[in-house]
Design a protein around this nucleic acid. Structure first.
Lengths: 174, 174
DNA sequence: CGCTACTGCTTGCAACAGCTAGCACTTGGG
DNA sequence: CCCAAGTGCTAGCTGTTGCAAGCAGTAGCG
């Protein structure tokens, strides 16, 4: 029962990494694209289109194949990719399904959903989450901070600051 | 810095509780509403309208006042509340701002966003947190949802899944 | 060469979202 | 009583979304 969940999450997080990459590329191209497109299409709208095309190219899927998989018309998908139309959330969800990525990813690209960021946001979210008991919050926060520390230490080690491979490899196993 | 964040989340979670109440009411009325409305408006769509009206009534705000606060036309808001129109994510975000609740809440009511066990904000925050590796994110998310499920199960038990009148009256007092 | 299958895109249209102008009703004050 | 201010809603309009029909180009095969 946990495998599909893990698989899905693995997919989502893998996509997120490509999002970060594509976002940097899009940030460079967004200013160019905005002047090309028109004021009727906001810059955020053209971002989701480019993102969709990027994902589709990465998956080596034709526009028609994705359109069929997503259940939308291929001309419309073409227009969306080129930033000529602004798709509804429903269409975005369909496209996400066709791309086998989460709808939230496309929502964020489209500016529908805010992308939360940062450590403070995570801590605050866990603390305020009433779907959790106080004990569970404490456990999650402790684990979170352990992981965050690890991540920071690993990043520092990769930069070649101070290597401590043995204790960390044990905790990774556990 | 954390107070406004906590305040916002407190608002969101308070609304969530009224969501659960309104959802039960809507579940009874939804079958009636579905036959009245039309197949062009899905049951989920009429749910967000009722939810909006419920929130508005709770806030003792007139339709016109909310429409003005939200920056949408009052006839349209009226149609949305009655399930005659299906608002876009953009309009939902505006209405949410007028109601001083999170847009995600309305997205979920509208069926745009999947309702995760727990607060959508927590999940999103963990996912977006770059202080975490992808593997750690997955672990945290899984643990989070396990805890949230436990919490929900406990809440269901406290609501008297098995009738114990004496403990219920005590818990209602508490 | 012609044909088929594929590619992405153009064009025109229907349906819908969201608006404005205005209506009918209610309430309170003079 | 009338009037003003408020309430939620109706009807008609405009602009946009998403589609179907079709086009132009490309590649591969006989």
């Amino acid at each position: 029962m946990q495998r599909p969940t893990e698989f899905v999450r693995e997919q989502v997080t893998a996509v997120r990494e490509s999002v970060a990459t594509a976002a940097q590329t899009a940030a460079a191209g967004a200013s160019t694209g905005a002047s090309t497109v028109a004021s009727s299409v906001p810059a955020v709208g053209s971002q989701v289109g480019e993102f969709i095309r990027t994902q589709r190219s990465a998956a080596q899927v034709s526009l028609r194949e994705l359109a069929r998989a997503a259940g939308v018309s291929n001309p419309y998908l073409s227009q969306v990719e080129r930033g000529l139309r602004k798709p509804s959330a429903e269409i975005l969800a369909q496209i996400a399904r066709g791309l086998k990525i989460s709808a939230e990813t496309l929502y964020e690209q489209a500016g529908i959903l805010d992308r939360r960021s940062g450590t403070a946001g995570t801590v605050a979210a866990i603390r305020a989450d009433e779907a959790l008991s106080e004990r569970h919050k404490a456990v999650l926060l402790e684990l979170y901070e352990t992981y965050a520390r690890e991540h920071a230490a690993q990043a520092a080690r990769e930069q070649g600051t101070t290597p401590h491979p043995t204790p960390e490899s044990q905790e990774e196993t556990a």
